[in-house]
Amino acid sequence: MTRPGRQTQADGLVQGTPRASSPALDAPRDAKKPLEDWEPVIGLEVHVQLATHTKIFSPSAIEFGAPPNSLTDPLVMGLPGTLPVFNHTVLQLVLRLGVATSSQIRARSRFARKHYFYPDLPKGYQISQYEEPLCESGHLDVILRGGLKRVKLQRIHIEEDAGKTTHVGARSA
């Protein structure tokens, strides 16, 4: 039986769109012929790490593979009283990407707090974009064997990366 669900590959989502309405949903389906009932529409959520010198909201340095907790400041540790200040280079790089993908760039865009509790999320929320992302409705043309294929981009938004969790047996660090 096929069901719409999460794809196992990193950050990809499969959305199942039923071709026929209720009969297809209600009746048991033959697992060998899923595509007769379902049209796969595959969207990709792609994370791009920007080559900046400092973090997006803090002047703390970035270095791949640095020892744990060696590149922090009061903000990065989520200490009380700290406030984020946005890295201008992040805006420049994302705008460049937006222009390169023929996106519509918003004159007014906004950040939002996305809440979840997790040990590598020091503030208890991730600063991300939800309504009014910076870039929308762009596209990327790729050359395939059959010719040019246009990949549509729903949105490009800016968000911070959380920290990192290492799992060791029954505990995490």
Partner: peptide, 15 residues
């Protein structure tokens, strides 16, 4: 308007 800062590192807290 949103205030921004230049992308220049400042010293980290010692671990």
């Amino acid at each position: 308007d949103l205030r921004m800062r230049v992308d220049v590192p400042e010293p980290s807290l010692p671990a």
